[in-house]
Design a protein around this nucleic acid. Sequence first.
DNA 1: TTGAAAGCGGTACCAG
DNA 2: CTGGTACCGCTTTCAA
Lengths: 344, 344
Amino acid sequence: MIGDKPTVNDIARHAGVSLATVDRVLNARPGVRKVTIERVTKAIDELGYIRDTAAANLARRRVYRFLFLVPGIASEFFDALQTQIKAQSVTLANERTHLRTQRVAQFDSREISIALDELQPDTTDGVAVIAPETPTVRDAVARARERGIAVVALLTDLPSSPRDHFIGIDNTSAGETAAKLMGCFTHAENGSILVLTGSRLARDHLERRHGFDSVMAGQFPHLKVLPSIEAGDDKEVAAKLLPGAFAEWSDIRGIYSSSATNDGLIEFLHSRAEPLIVIAHELTPQSRGALLRGQFDALISQDTGHIVRSAVRLMRSTVDAVPFNAMQERIRIEIFLKENLPPE
Amino acid sequence: MIGDKPTVNDIARHAGVSLATVDRVLNARPGVRKVTIERVTKAIDELGYIRDTAAANLARRRVYRFLFLVPGIASEFFDALQTQIKAQSVTLANERTHLRTQRVAQFDSREISIALDELQPDTTDGVAVIAPETPTVRDAVARARERGIAVVALLTDLPSSPRDHFIGIDNTSAGETAAKLMGCFTHAENGSILVLTGSRLARDHLERRHGFDSVMAGQFPHLKVLPSIEAGDDKEVAAKLLPGAFAEWSDIRGIYSSSATNDGLIEFLHSRAEPLIVIAHELTPQSRGALLRGQFDALISQDTGHIVRSAVRLMRSTVDAVPFNAMQERIRIEIFLKENLPPE
DNA sequence: TTGAAAGCGGTACCAG
DNA sequence: CTGGTACCGCTTTCAA
C-alpha cells in the first residue's frame, strides 16, 4: 500500500490506458469510447483520485482575470473596498489571479449594464458587481453569464438575477441588530428615534429599515421611530436636514444611520451637547473616530477584506466548477463598540 | 517587453548561468562563488522575479504536517474547535497539508510539555498549542522550536515563550466589551454583577476579568462587581455555587460568565424568573440556544473556523519563511445578539 | 563551483 | 478513438 495520493499516472496504469486518455475523461473532452470512459472512471474512484489543482493550473498556465464594479461616489466605505481590492491584487498576482476595479455611477443601471456588456470572456473570467436590482441589470447579468463570465453580487443581492453568488450580509438582520442595540442602549422611558438612510433606491437600505422597524415595534414600543430622512449619502443634505428634524421633534433620543457615509451626521453631532444614542454602519476612519470620541455608540459593519477575499474565492470556484466552503464565505454582521475596535 | 512574469529560466539566461545555479542562489544553498551569487541576485531584481510557490511545492513534493494540541476537557467550545480542525483537514489534505489533533489535560503543563517534546521535525512541521504560561511550557516550546518545529499559541498567548505567533483575541478588550454591554443593557439604578470564571489559572480569564472590572468601574460605577466565582468549567460546581451567591447578594442585576462552558449557568437560569442580564463567551450550540431563548443577552465570541485557518496559514508561512497578511490573521472579538446570530 | 537532465502532477498538441 | 511526448516553473540528483 502506497501512502501517497494517486496521480494521473496511477489511473492510467490501473485502467490500462494512456495519460492522454485519462486527461480526456477527467476533463470531459470528446473522442473517448463509452467503454473506455467507464474503465477510467472506475479506476478513478477505485483509487480515490483527487486532482491536484495547483499542478493543473501550472500546466494549463491558467490565469484568472476578475473585475470589480464599484460605485463611483465619494464614500469612505467604497474607498476602503477599492483599497482592499488593490492591496489584495498584489498578493493574488503571484497566484495567477489578476484584479481590476472599475467605478460606475451608483444606482445607474444603464451604466452598469453597459459595463457588463463590454466584458468579453477572453479578457475577463469573472465580475463582482454592486448594483441595484433592476430589469436592466438583471438582463445584463444574464447576458454576461451566457457569455461564460462568472458573476457575483456584492453587498446588495440580486436574487432575481442569475448571479452565481451573493457576498454580503443579511441586511434585514443588520437592521434588527441596530434596533436591538438602540433599544437596549436608550435608557429613556419614551421618545423618538431618527432614521437616516442613504437612498430609497437601494434594496439594502430598505431591508435595514424594515428589520429596524420590526424589532423596535416588537421589543421597544415605548420608542417611536420617525420616517426616514433620505440623505442620499450626501454630506450637504444631511447637514441641512438634521437641524430641521430636531426642531420638529423635540424628544429625539437616538439616531440610526443606515447609510455608509456619515460626514453630514458627524458634523451635525459636533454641534450638539445633549446625550444621544447613535448607531451607524461600516467601520471607516471617520466612523472609527466618531466611535472613539463617543459620538457613535455602536457600529454595524462588514469586513471589506473578507468580502474581497470571498468574492475572489467564489469567482474562482465558479469558473473552475469546484465546490467551496460555505461557512468560510459567510460574511458576518459585525458589531463594534469602542471597546472591541480592532487596533488600526 | 514581455507581459509574463519572469521565471527561473529567464534569470538563468539573463545572468548567463544554469538553472541549477539560480536555484542554489534562490534557496541560499552553499557552493556558489560570491561573484556568481551577485550576478544572479542582480538578474533577480532587475527582472523583478517572484517565485511561484505552487510550482516549487510541486517539484519539492512538499507536504506540511501540523499538530493541534487541544485541552481534553468536555467542552462544547473545544469540541467545536476539534470539529473545525477535522473539517478543514479534508480540504487541506488536497493542498498537501495534513492536520492532526491530540487532546491533553487542560492546564497540565507537564503533559503538554511531554507532548511537545515528543514531536520530531521529520514527522511534524508545526504545532498549535493551547497552554497556560508556565516555565515548563515555555521551555518545551523553546526546545521544539530549536528542533525546527514552528510553534503557534492558540487562544491563550505565551508572550514570554519564543512562540512564532499568537492566534486569538485580546482578552482584556473582550472583558471590556462584555462590561460595556453589561452596563448599557442593565437599566437598574444600582445593584451587583456576578462574575463566573473558568479557572484562575488561565491567563485569558484573568485578562477578561481585568478588562471587565476597569470598564465597570470607570463607566458604570453604580453597578458593583462581585468577586469571581470559580466554576472551573465544571457544570456541577456552577450549579451548586450559584444559588448560594443569589442568597448572599439579593441585588444581582447581571451575570458575566468569562468561561467557555456554560452548562451549569444555563441550568441555573432555567430555575429563575426574575430578569437578569447575562453575557457569556463563545458561540456553541448551547449558548446559541440560551441566546435564542432570551436567557443570554449577548455573546462575546471568536470564530473557531477562522482560528484554525489562521493557525494553518501562519504555521505554513513560518516554515516557508515567507510573509503573511497581518490583517487577515487578526481574530475579531465578535459580538452576537439574538438578532445577528448567523443561521446554523 | 557549476551544469545537464530527470522529474513533480497535469495538460495539450500531433500523429496514427 | 487513442497514445506519445513536450512542457508549465521549479527542485534535485549526478557528473563534470
